[in-house]
Amino acid sequence: MNTTIWLVRREFWENRAIWMMPAIIGGLMILAALFGSVDLMASATQLPSRAVGQLFFVTVGATFFAVMSIYSTWYLLDCLYSDRKDRSVLFWKSMPISDTRTVMSKLATALIVIPLVYFAAANLTTLLMGFIISVRAISSVGGALWHVDLWLQTQALWLYLILTAAVWYLPIAAYLLVVSAWAKRAVMLWSIMPPLACIIAERWLFGTQVIAQRLGERLMGLPRVAFNAKLGSWVSAGVDTNTFTTPANLWSFIDLRGFLANAETTIGAALGVALIGCAIQLRIRRTEI
């Protein structure tokens, strides 16, 4: 366990963007709260106070998570590749650390550690922004941001999302690691080429789009699988009536059992485990570029 902690710490040393990027995003948001106008928010004040608060929590959080998903993708593509590119793999491999542990530490960094860093940054930002906006007291918005129960619910929601995303996106993360351990150059290109080639070949040979569809479902399907049907009806109701009502309980959307029982989850996880095995074997065998 101790070794794994050192391996994760090393990822922080190498990839300072892990904490610098969320720090910058948070800083910009806080600056906006300090000096920006809150007109946008004010226009939303026709909405009930709880809805404003919720919008606020979700918007800040979603911004962080959007940036994080892009960064994590890049991180996974780069992590094993950069060790080989600068030949430092020869140093890392001189330590009594198995390649399995190394690969797993990078996977855990991408799927758990980085999301938790962004989660913490998003939380800190929300609290500071809420505080600043309340103190500036430009509108009634300020008060709307202090719903302790809402805040707690959003926390649970984000943590639940981190957990389910780690499982749901496992095959994609593992695939990126395989590319990172295998490619001699242009990891980005190599990560896109095989699925693209498959999609084109399928269309050309069979005229179908099964792969493209499956891929799209994997990339976009997490909310559908991780939350129950109530979320969908709530969102569409909100869109239809052009009003935003707050459900009494955000937790009621969470459907962990349904998520775990879903065949898509299980198949994806199994594929992910197989691909992790590939990435480890490649890390063992491919020392240099």
Partner: peptide, 9 residues
């Protein structure tokens, strides 16, 4: 090999 310690370390 020489100089395999990563630049950022």
């Amino acid at each position: 090999d020489v100089a395999v310690l990563p630049a950022w370390l």
